[in-house]
């Protein structure tokens, strides 16, 4: 499988869209998962997934293979979703909406914890997803989200606390 993956990457680098489709098919679920968990909105997550793959296509000629393709794509996906998250943040400030109400997705088919993550307040959710699921450090998250490192840590603990209480409710 790894060898097949490398072949697709090499072919896609040369402009082969069929090979890129195979990569898309292989990774769309993971990319969508990052986007949905960060944005808590199916429509935005789908847009972000498409955008992440478009960026990957554009940046692929520069992919040197220092990290695995999967890691590289994850990084692009996280950053793409964060870009949209930041735009949403600006919009929230402009329209003065209550952040706690943002992003709730009614998804009864999803596991309990998955649903709870989507219910988290926007910033706590972003920090939690980036730290607990994507493996970023708090200083990196602070840079990505434009917040203080201390805020990142505080939001993470807040997220965990909320998740523990919500999951326990059901």
């Amino acid at each position: 499988m790894q060898q097949q993956l490398e072949t697709w990457v090499q072919q896609a680098k040369k402009g082969d869209q069929q090979a890129f489709y195979q990569l898309y098919h292989q990774f769309k679920g993971r990319v969508y998962a990052i986007c949905l968990r960060l944005l808590a909105d199916r429509g935005q997550a789908e847009d972000a997934t498409q955008e992440a793959f478009v960026r990957a296509w554009q940046q692929l000629p520069g992919f040197r293979g220092d990290s695995s393709f999967s890691t590289w794509l994850h990084s692009i996906s996280s950053r793409t979703a964060v870009d949209i998250w930041r735009k949403n943040k600006v919009m929230r400030l402009v329209v003065d909406e209550e952040p706690e109400e943002q992003g709730y997705v009614d998804a009864p088919e999803m596991p309990q914890l998955e649903q709870a993550i989507l219910r988290l307040p926007s910033q706590a959710r972003a920090v939690f997803v980036l730290f607990a699921l994507e493996g970023y450090q708090h200083n990196e998250i602070a840079d990505l989200l434009g917040i203080a490192e201390g805020s990142s840590k505080a939001q993470y603990h807040r997220a965990r606390q909320l998740l523990r209480s919500w999951v326990d409710e059901n």
């Binding site: 679920g29 997550a45 699921l133």
Partner: peptide
């Protein structure tokens, strides 16, 4: 519970 989260979620439409 976090460690058991699915690594992939399928979008509802063909992107």
């Amino acid at each position: 519970m976090i460690s058991q989260l699915a690594p992939a979620l399928e979008p509802q439409r063909d992107l």
